[in-house]
Design a protein around this nucleic acid. Structure first.
Lengths: 150, 150
DNA sequence: GGTGAAAGCTAGCCGGC
DNA sequence: GCCGGCTAGCTTTCACC
């Protein structure tokens, strides 16, 4: 996808405000970036159409939702057989406790983020599922002590 | 923080809707979960106050925003001197390209997520900043090939 | 949980620069 | 082309049932 319009200062200000608080009213957003509501709304809509703003999501507190046990999982796969890799990927993506999946260059082959209530839930729902997949060679779990940002 | 009220079906439905689209109007949200707007709004506000809904954020497409170069950084620190650690943490958190910071149990001591335009930007804005901090012992960069989820 | 009403917001249309 | 003013219609949000 090509960028037809380059983003100016105002666009960046709008994006920053909406990243900080997606529920800002258009009126308040306009006031903050120094515009009147009408052109402000037009810019927001243009950013949405262009795909720069991909969506708006409520952030659920992992702790409050009973998912304070966060683990970063490094996975190495055994083979470069494309079928088993595809099986692995589609299986991983479907596990609801797995909230992020990245294919990496070099090692490890994958990084996962997992959010569960406790170690038991982690073991039963995630590790048990993943270690059964034929492609998986090695699983390294790193438990999060504290999240400082993000 | 203790949960005074346990969340019922309706709360979970509301959360799911708002995670999918935080800009739903309260009227539409109420309709979808089978409520009238007023009690629906009260529930949303209660969830916000309880910290279950931590906030609402616009999702900026990393690609569209020219931040397609995503790196997971594993950092080990040299000392357990609390002052240098605090310096390190506050310095890391302030770097805008660093979008996530976790303190881990075991090794590595920290996991960072960094989003920049390219390798050059990564080197100059992040590595240069981080490697100058006295607490830092070792930096391991893992470049993301593809994000499959999250 | 539902009702009603005041205040505020959205989103279109128009003119001006 | 982009901004700002206007206005009709809708939504939000509250006190009260």
């Amino acid at each position: 996808m090509r960028n037809k319009h380059t983003l100016d200062e105002l666009d960046h200000a709008i994006i920053a405000e909406l990243v900080a608080d997606a529920r800002l009213s258009n009126t308040e957003l306009a006031r903050r970036v120094g515009l009147t509501p009408a052109p402000c709304l037009r810019r927001v809509q243009r950013l949405e159409r262009a795909g720069v703003i991909a969506g708006y999501h409520a952030a659920v507190s992992a702790k409050a939702a009973g998912r304070g046990f966060e683990v970063i999982v490094a996975i190495d796969i055994a083979v470069n057989n494309s079928v088993t890799i595809e099986d692995f990927e589609s299986a991983v993506v479907q596990v609801p406790e797995v909230t992020e999946v990245r294919r990496m260059f070099g090692q490890p082959d994958y990084y996962l983020r997992v959010e569960v209530t406790d170690g038991e839930a982690y073991e039963s729902s995630v590790i048990r599922t993943l270690s059964q997949l034929p492609a998986v060679n090695r699983i390294l779990s790193h438990q999060t002590m504290r999240r400082l940002k993000g």
